[in-house]
Simulated scan of single mutants.
Amino acid sequence: MKRQDFRSVHRLRVRWAEVDIQKIVFNAHYLTYADIGMSEYWRALAMPYEATMQALGGDIYLKKASVEYHASARMDDVLDIGMRCTRVGNSSLSFECGIFAGDRLLVTVELIYVFADPVTQTSRPVPQLLRDTILQFEGGADMVTLKVGDWATLGEAASAVRKAVFIEEQGISPDIELDALDSTAVHAVAFNRLGMPVATGRLLQDAPGEARIGRMAVARVLRGQRWGRAILDALVDASRERGDDKVILHAQCSAEGFYRRAAFEVVGAPYEEAGIAHITMQLALAK
Rank of each mutant, 00 (worst) to 15 (best):
K2T: 10
Q4P: 00
H10M: 07
W16D: 06
V19P: 02
I21M: 12
Q22N: 07
A28D: 03
G37D: 13
M38K: 05
M38N: 11
M47W: 13
A55P: 00
G58L: 05
Y61V: 14
K63L: 15
K63V: 13
S72T: 06
G82I: 01
C85K: 07
C85H: 06
D103I: 01
R104M: 00
L105F: 03
L105M: 11
P118Y: 05
T122I: 12
S123K: 14
R124V: 01
P125D: 10
L129M: 13
D132C: 02
T133A: 14
W151A: 08
A152Q: 14
E156S: 15
A157F: 07
R162H: 07
K163S: 07
A164G: 07
V165H: 03
E168K: 14
Q170A: 02
S173H: 09
S173W: 10
D179R: 03
D182P: 04
T184A: 13
A188C: 11
R193F: 03
P197D: 03
T200I: 06
L204R: 12
E210Y: 13
A219M: 11
D245I: 00
L249Q: 06
A255R: 06
R260D: 11
V266G: 04
G268E: 01
E273D: 14
A274R: 04
Q282V: 04
L285T: 03
K287R: 15
